[in-house]
Simulated assay, not measured.
Amino acid sequence: MNRVILFNKPFGVLSQFTDKGTQGSARPTLSGFIDEPGFYPAGRLDKDSEGLLVLTDNGALQARIAHPKYKRPKTYLVQVEGTPDAAALDALRKGVTLKDGKTAPATITQIDPPADLWERDPPVRFRKSVPDAWLEITIREGRNRQVRRMTAHVGLPTLRLIRSQIGDWRLNQMRPGTWRWASETGA
């Protein structure tokens, strides 16, 4: 049986076990949170994003989780700067054309601010003169910084991005920096 770990990646943590960046930088990595040999992340979250990261000790399962050809849905809670209008939400639902091509249609819902959300460290920078809103966005692709680029394309820059679900695996009530075991087929 393949082993699966669900991890709530904190803001600022790299989605890898070692920092291959510039010499002398001491950026936090997965090794500061997970001490299980042989596990690798199935997909990535950039260091500025938070939330669900799935890790496994099986390369074939890792590919089935992460590779876009399997079209596994990924759901994000996205705080955006500005007030979404119907045209912006409709454009995201239909797919927007980015530098690397048109995105597949996404499922978009404007939501209330999540009630049980943890504080981010450092806090999100707010501008008192500009409103913000929360969206729930589900995509079936995995392009580099895709959700951030999609929201920026429609004039709604992302302030905070939290992946809450991959396929049937859900973040649920996990706090940042914690992990738990999960089944291969779902959480």
Rank of each mutant, 00 (worst) to 15 (best):
G177M: 05
R64S: 12
Q146A: 06
L161V: 11
G95I: 04
G59W: 05
T178N: 09
V78H: 08
V147E: 03
E141Q: 14
A106Y: 01
N58R: 09
L61N: 06
L159G: 05
A87I: 04
S129K: 13
R180W: 05
T109L: 09
P84C: 12
T138L: 00
I166N: 03
L92C: 11
K102P: 07
L161H: 13
R64E: 15
V154G: 03
N172M: 13
I166T: 14
P123Y: 10
Y70G: 05
K128C: 00
V78R: 08
R125E: 13
A115R: 15
P122D: 08
R140C: 11
T97G: 02
E136M: 07
R140L: 00
P68H: 10
W118A: 15
N144A: 09
I162V: 15
L117M: 15
T138I: 00
D112H: 08
E136D: 01
E141N: 07
R145Q: 11
A115G: 05
K74Y: 07
L135W: 09
I65T: 10
R127G: 02
K99T: 11
R148Q: 11
S129I: 06
V80I: 13
V130E: 04
M174W: 02
L98D: 13
W179S: 13
I162Y: 09
I166D: 06
A60S: 11
R140I: 11
Y76R: 00
R140W: 00
I162R: 10
K102A: 14
P122I: 08
L92D: 11
D57F: 02
L171G: 14
A87H: 09
A86C: 01
A91G: 06
V147R: 02
T178P: 01
